[in-house]
């Protein structure tokens, strides 16, 4: 059984009487431990797919099974709980809270999950160790470089030991060298057996994942156009 089963999912917006199909009858299965990228130009619907799979949004039609539970009809409260325990997000703009220290930022998901303060501290330290930032716990995000900030965000995504990590353009706000380091971190996490879904418009980044799904006009493109995306230059890497 797949970790995520997306079946015939559509997301329809109504803008000024006009119907916009952000997602149109999409079906995807993602297995546990997969490292997969969702690629597509902006406005293609890739972010919508991520948001629906990541329980930030609900589909207009279709069903989603996440870790064995159907979630398309879940209440906002249930969705919040699923996001808290099973999903980790990494965003393009890091979205760290500037007034909190690095440690407090990483602890934040556990604050809503209801862990004791000593447990929060311990687990946050472990997560920071994973991203090699356990020496910066007392710093504010503004005192860190972009790459460091993104690593804090990754630690925050990892801290509740989620089933899936969604990374939405995680390198979009970093220079190419730092971006490369972040991607290496994701690769390492993938080797450790985590399920990672990378959302990007950049084929070079998508190239590092063994499996890619291309979204065009709200639909899954039949095949990934390797030449168009420039993927022919990046041979697929063997799955670990």
């Amino acid at each position: 059984m797949a970790l995520v089963e997306i079946r015939n999912v559509s997301k329809i917006y109504h803008l000024g009487g006009e119907e916009i199909r952000a997602l149109d009858d999409v079906s995807v299965d993602i297995d546990g431990g997969e490292f997969i990228s969702i690629i597509g130009p902006s406005g293609s619907g890739k972010s919508t797919l991520m948001q629906i799979a990541g329980c930030l949004d609900t589909p207009t039609r279709g069903t989603i099974k996440l870790d064995g539970a159907m979630i398309q009809d879940a209440s906002p409260r249930q969705l919040a709980a699923i996001r808290n325990r099973k999903i980790g997000f990494v965003f393009q703009f890091f979205n760290l809270l500037p007034k909190l220290t690095v440690l407090q930022n990483v602890e934040l998901p556990m604050v809503y999950g209801g862990a004791s303060s000593s447990e929060r501290r311990e687990r946050a330290m472990q997560a920071l160790k994973l991203v090699n930032l356990d020496n910066r716990t007392k710093h504010r995000p503004s005192q860190l470089s972009g790459g460091q900030q993104q690593r804090v965000a990754i630690a925050r995504a990892l801290v509740n030991d989620p089933k899936i990590i969604f990374a939405d353009e995680p390198t979009g706000n970093l220079d190419s060298h730092t971006g490369e380091l972040i991607l290496q971190l994701f690769r390492q996490l993938s080797r450790e057996g985590r399920t990672i879904i990378l959302v990007t418009h950049d084929p070079e980044i998508a190239a590092i994942t063994p499996r890619r799904i291309e979204i065009r006009d709200g639909k899954i493109a039949d095949t990934v156009d390797a030449t168009l995306a420039g993927l022919d230059r990046f041979p697929l890497q063997p799955t670990p």
């Binding site: 930030l56 906002p76 409260r77 919040a80 709980a81 996001r83 808290n84 325990r85 997000f89 965003f91 703009f93 979205n95 809270l97 934040l108 998901p109 809503y112 999950g113 925050r156 509740n160």
Partner: peptide, 16 residues
């Protein structure tokens, strides 16, 4: 707004 969005994304409920 962003802070609130982030808090919700990582598991804060409406009530929180």
């Amino acid at each position: 707004v962003r802070e609130i969005g982030l808090r919700k994304a990582i598991g804060a409920t409406t009530a929180d």
